[in-house]
Simulated scan of single mutants.
Amino acid sequence: MAYRYRPIPAWGGCAVRRVLVGVCCGSLLALAACGPGGQDDGRGGRPPPAPAGVTAAAGSATTVHVMWNRPGGDAGITGYEVYRGTTRVARVPGAEHMVDVTGLRPSTRYTFTVRARNADGDLGPAGGPVRATTPAAVAADGAAPTRPGRPHARAAGSRAVQLSWGRSTDDLGVASYDILQGGTKIHSVGGAQTAAVVTGLRPGTRYSFTVRARDAADNVSRASAAVRLTTPRDADGGRGTAPTAPTGFRAGSHRADGAYYLDLSWDPPRADGVITEYQIRLDGRPATSLMWGGKAPRGRATYSFYTGRESGVTHRVRLRARLPDGTWGAFSAERTVTTGRRDRPAES
């Protein structure tokens, strides 16, 4: 089917670049940094298990960072719902396992629970509950904490890393520390801690971590120097995971409303979680990022995007997935497509 783009503004704190308008098998595809979860369809299928390892830590006087463990294997989870007391405050895609709850009151104790949702829309039991107290509000605080000291890292098996770093200082106190992997926040701990364990990693994979300090007024320090390490391979000498590139990648083109579109289809790589984001490269350059705002396909995926109005233009295209541990997987095989010409690519 034909698709078209329309620009939309950011909403809910999510930077949304554009939305792909079109319905395929009843799902809306969205190019966005986040999106709403689905509603319970009441079909009464077997619900997913309760999320394990739920934690909550105040990030500032008005925010709390809620985090939980990823399930092992294929648990069929497509999303999570986070509750403050009995009020749902966030929906999180199945490939993620944390959220910052904002708009809270200073000096207040909150209780949080997390529930998982499966592909049938069934909600599982709540994990937790966990509690966190926001610190007191700070008036007219414009000074950020000092930069954390250089972190140190030690592998804790093939799928976890122990991090430690030098303490930051702040005129009114450090409320929390953010841990970033490759520039993406993946964890948060209280301001009294200077160590953390990062889990859900892949064996035989190189990672880079930095740390930022945050005060009660949400002032954020500069990121620390980076620490890099490679997780050990599994005992059998392998990475312990399936290849990370999408397979069965095919590319063709079609014409609609006087313009040409590339039509892509592929099978997602196997991973410990649902893959919701892909990066597409066209002619050797990043073309767009694709994220499913609703239910991400667990089987074969399809996508079409605009390339121009000229016939006879040859394009090279490939794509890769952002894996549940935050790293990018390997690129698919590259396909060549000429607009206006029937394409017959070989399977990868």
Rank of each mutant, 00 (worst) to 15 (best):
residue 102 T to C: 06
residue 96 E to H: 11
residue 94 G to Q: 06
residue 102 T to S: 12
residue 103 G to N: 04
residue 44 G to V: 13
residue 47 P to R: 12
residue 66 V to Q: 03
residue 99 V to N: 04
residue 60 S to L: 11
residue 64 V to Q: 05
residue 64 V to L: 05
residue 75 A to N: 08
residue 79 G to L: 04
residue 55 T to N: 03
residue 98 M to T: 06
residue 80 Y to K: 04
residue 39 Q to K: 10
residue 110 Y to G: 04
residue 52 A to T: 10
residue 111 T to D: 01
residue 102 T to H: 02
residue 104 L to Y: 02
residue 68 W to F: 03
residue 85 G to Y: 04
residue 83 Y to N: 02
residue 107 S to L: 14
residue 93 P to F: 04
residue 53 G to A: 06
residue 46 R to Y: 10
residue 95 A to G: 15
residue 61 A to I: 04
residue 102 T to K: 08
residue 61 A to F: 06
residue 108 T to G: 08
residue 101 V to M: 04
residue 54 V to W: 02
residue 110 Y to E: 07
residue 72 G to N: 11
residue 103 G to D: 04
residue 67 M to Y: 08
residue 46 R to M: 14
residue 106 P to D: 02
residue 87 T to N: 07
residue 89 V to F: 02
residue 79 G to A: 11
residue 119 A to F: 12
residue 115 R to C: 08
residue 112 F to I: 03
residue 90 A to V: 04
residue 96 E to M: 12
residue 62 T to V: 08
residue 48 P to Q: 05
residue 108 T to C: 09
residue 117 R to G: 00
residue 68 W to V: 07
residue 60 S to P: 01
residue 54 V to D: 00
residue 77 I to D: 09
residue 85 G to Q: 03
residue 41 D to L: 14
residue 39 Q to E: 15
residue 78 T to V: 15
residue 42 G to E: 11
residue 84 R to Q: 12
residue 91 R to E: 15
residue 62 T to D: 10
residue 116 A to N: 09
residue 65 H to S: 05
residue 44 G to W: 10
residue 82 V to A: 03
residue 108 T to A: 05
residue 107 S to A: 15
residue 107 S to F: 09
residue 41 D to R: 15
residue 82 V to N: 03
residue 103 G to S: 08
residue 48 P to N: 09
residue 71 P to A: 11
residue 71 P to V: 12
residue 59 G to N: 01
residue 100 D to I: 01
residue 120 D to C: 11
residue 59 G to C: 06
residue 58 A to T: 06
residue 93 P to M: 08
residue 72 G to E: 14
residue 75 A to R: 11
residue 88 R to V: 04
residue 87 T to S: 14
residue 83 Y to A: 03
residue 79 G to V: 12
residue 104 L to N: 01
residue 46 R to C: 08
residue 41 D to K: 15
residue 94 G to A: 08
residue 98 M to G: 10
residue 108 T to E: 09
residue 119 A to W: 11
residue 51 P to W: 01
residue 110 Y to M: 09
residue 54 V to I: 02
residue 111 T to R: 12
residue 104 L to S: 03
residue 113 T to L: 01
residue 52 A to N: 08
residue 112 F to R: 02
residue 89 V to A: 00
residue 55 T to E: 10
residue 98 M to Y: 13
residue 86 T to W: 07
residue 104 L to R: 02
residue 44 G to H: 13
residue 99 V to P: 08
residue 75 A to Q: 13
residue 43 R to F: 14
residue 81 E to G: 15
residue 96 E to P: 02
residue 86 T to L: 09
residue 95 A to S: 14
residue 117 R to K: 14
residue 70 R to K: 11
residue 57 A to V: 15
residue 72 G to T: 07
residue 70 R to G: 12
residue 120 D to I: 05
